[in-house]
């Protein structure tokens, strides 16, 4: 249990996705990382039937790092309600078929190899939506620490080191959102303390899921716009 940061990586021109992943894997192995099995994170989106009041989308996610759990995010448009549940939650969603229907075309997943490199856990995920390759999403976990702001620099250095890409020095925007503690306060908008953000809070498994959801959303938008932009271009290929 540590801090996880997600980083999309754009496929260089003239190369296919699998080639890029193979290339990154070789680099990791050369660094001394050890491959330790594989991983998969999948996300299924349930769209409510229009006759059932206000539209509330439900995203159901699974993460192979947490094999016993099912994660769900209820998206009302203004607010996101997270839920961690047992694996039986999937069966519950099937029962709710009249209210929510799953759109199989939007099922998106990121899967690939999992590398252990000292205290780091690096996952090279290739994102596919309905069997179509969408891009590469890297997950880096620093296991000994639980406060994101304390280890962001370490993670950034590692990312820069093996990707050969310059990573912005600021922590990803997800960690700048107010933490749960300050959000629950009735006057949260008035007395918002910039230090009460997620980067100074204890990292939760749900944070990983929220980041995945955010990036999956980006990939879906890209599909609609039919253009892909990761951050930064590789310095050397």
């Amino acid at each position: 249990m540590g801090v996880t940061v997600l980083q999309p990586y754009s496929v260089p021109e003239g190369q296919t996705g699998p080639q890029t992943i193979e290339f990154l894997a070789k680099r990791l192995l050369a660094l001394g990382a050890v491959q330790a099995s594989t991983f998969i994170v999948d996300c299924e989106t349930f769209i409510p039937n229009p006759q059932h009041g206000t539209p509330k989308t439900v995203h159901v996610l699974h993460n192979s790092e947490y094999p016993a759990s099912t994660f769900a995010v209820l998206d009302t448009g203004t607010k996101q309600v997270p839920l961690v549940a047992d694996a039986l939650f999937d069966l519950l969603m099937l029962k709710m078929a009249p209210a929510h229907t799953s759109k199989k075309q939007t099922k998106i997943e990121s899967k690939g190899a999992r590398f252990e490199y000292g205290d780091f856990l690096i996952k090279l995920g290739s994102v596919t939506m309905a069997e179509n390759f969408k891009g590469i999403l890297l997950e880096v976990e620093y296991r000994p620490c639980v406060i994101p702001s304390n280890c962001w620099e370490l993670i950034r250095e590692l990312l820069q080191g093996f990707l050969g890409v310059s990573i912005p020095a600021t922590i990803p925007p997800y960690f700048n959102t107010p933490s749960i503690m300050s959000m629950n306060h009735p006057k949260s908008s008035e007395i918002f303390n910039p230090n009460h953000t997620k980067q100074n809070d204890v990292y939760q498994p749900m944070d990983t899921i929220n980041q995945y959801l955010e990036h999956f959303g980006n990939f879906r938008k890209q599909t609609m716009l039919s253009g892909g932009t990761g951050i930064g271009a590789p310095l050397r290929s």
């Binding site: 249990m1 192979s64 790092e65 947490y66 094999p67 016993a68 759990s69 099912t70 994660f71 961690v84 549940a85 047992d86 694996a87 039986l88 939760q204 498994p205 749900m206």
Partner: peptide, 12 residues
Amino acid sequence: LAGPMAADRHEL
């Protein structure tokens, strides 16, 4: 409680 508490691989 492993499911709702999001226990990871190692804990399981």
